[in-house]
């Protein structure tokens, strides 16, 4: 009984719209990998020229001898049945693509969540501060911060943090996810289940030193990723604060004699946050790109490094798997964010 404007109807429409988006991304991946120059089969031999018969049999094995349209539908069928194939690159040859992704994804999730947390913790208060003190020095400072931090290369910020806190002050580990031999839950029976995220795993284990170890390694990457995003957050929140602080309902509150602090927090801030949730969705693309750079800077073996390694070794199946995985995640996240936004703000559903 989905009435027009109900949440259920909105969710269903968004799901229907998400399918063509996913299909377009999958097609783009296919086009890029199959049609652009750079033969993955030749890359198998790492620069040496193999005999023609070997090329032909490799082609046949990978299904590259079929017409493009057949290849395309085989590719789609494989993806929708979850068959990502085996790696053909030098680095991971013969290993299951899906396995590699599953091993590395938790590390990326950790820094992505850490980054988002930092971005919210830094960006939102700054935005509120700036928005409620319009054109005062605080406002100018926050706007400058937002503009500047947004255009700082993530990897450079990471290197500077590494240098200051990891090398000079030695407060935090500069590299990696873990120091010491045994990662949490590496012993088979020590945990009920494993997530692969060291922070969560050490909590499941109930080992506090392990937890501190994992968190300490997470601080610098999260700061790196989060600070860059926080500039954008601060600006968005500020713009929305300006809008809500001059809105009729705030004026009404002011007329009723409600103290300024209560107006800023209860009326302006809460309403300013609503559009931020929708903007958040767009940030995930930037977050993932940033995560690759952060992983490289802090030598974290995440999914970005996997993609990077497979791209440099022209490992076609692995690239395909990782990129499709990224595309799916992004489509799903934007779906979730849209639905969240619609739940908070009923006007979006209309």
């Amino acid at each position: 009984m989905a009435r027009d404007g109900s949440l259920l109807a909105y969710v269903l429409t968004r799901i229907v719209l998400a399918v063509p988006m996913l299909l377009i991304l999958l097609t783009a991946v296919f086009v890029i990998l199959r049609i652009l120059p750079g033969d993955p089969v030749l890359a198998l031999w790492g620069g040496r020229t193999p005999p023609q018969s070997a090329i032909d049999s490799a082609r046949q094995q990978l299904g590259l001898d079929q017409p493009l349209i057949v290849q395309y539908f085989t590719y789609l069928r494989n993806i929708f049945t979850g068959n990502f194939g085996l790696s053909i690159g030098e680095l991971y040859r013969g290993q299951s693509v899906w396995n590699q992704i599953a091993i590395r994804f938790p590390a990326t999730v950790e820094i992505a969540i850490g980054g988002m947390t930092v971005a919210c913790l830094v960006g939102i208060p700054l935005g509120v501060l700036a928005g409620s003190n319009r054109d005062k020095p605080v406002d100018l400072a926050v706007r400058l911060f937002g503009t500047i931090i947004w255009v700082i290369p993530i990897f450079w910020l990471g290197l500077v943090l590494q240098l200051v806190f990891g090398v000079w002050l030695q407060w935090l580990p500069a590299n990696g996810r873990w120091s010491g031999a045994d990662a949490p839950c590496s012993a088979p029976s020590s945990c009920l289940f494993r997530t692969g995220m060291y922070t969560v795993d050490s909590l499941i284990e109930g080992n506090l030193t392990h937890f501190v170890n994992a968190v300490a390694h997470l601080v610098l990457p999260s700061l790196t990723l989060g600070l860059v995003l926080s500039g954008f957050f601060a600006k968005t929140v500020r713009a929305n604060m300006l809008r809500t602080i001059s809105a009729d309902f705030t004026e009404a509150a002011r007329a009723r004699g409600i103290p300024r602090r209560a107006i800023v927090y209860r009326h302006a801030f809460k309403n300013a946050l609503v559009p931020v949730v929708t903007v958040l969705g767009l940030q995930f693309a930037i977050l993932f790109a940033g995560a690759v750079l952060t992983e490289k800077t802090f030598s974290i073996e995440g999914i970005g490094i996997l993609l990077l390694n497979s791209v440099t070794s022209k490992d076609m199946t692995m690239i395909q798997g990782v990129v499709v995985f990224y595309a799916t995640i992004i489509v799903v996240i934007s779906l979730v964010i849209d639905v969240l936004g619609a739940m908070i703000d009923p006007r979006i559903r209309l």
Binding site: M21, I24, L25, A28, L282, A285, I286, F288, A289, V292, L293, L307, V323, Y326, A327, I330, V331, S334
Partner: peptide
């Protein structure tokens, strides 16, 4: 295309 990480 816009939603996909441009760098990648």
């Amino acid at each position: 295309l816009y939603a996909f990480p441009g760098l990648l």
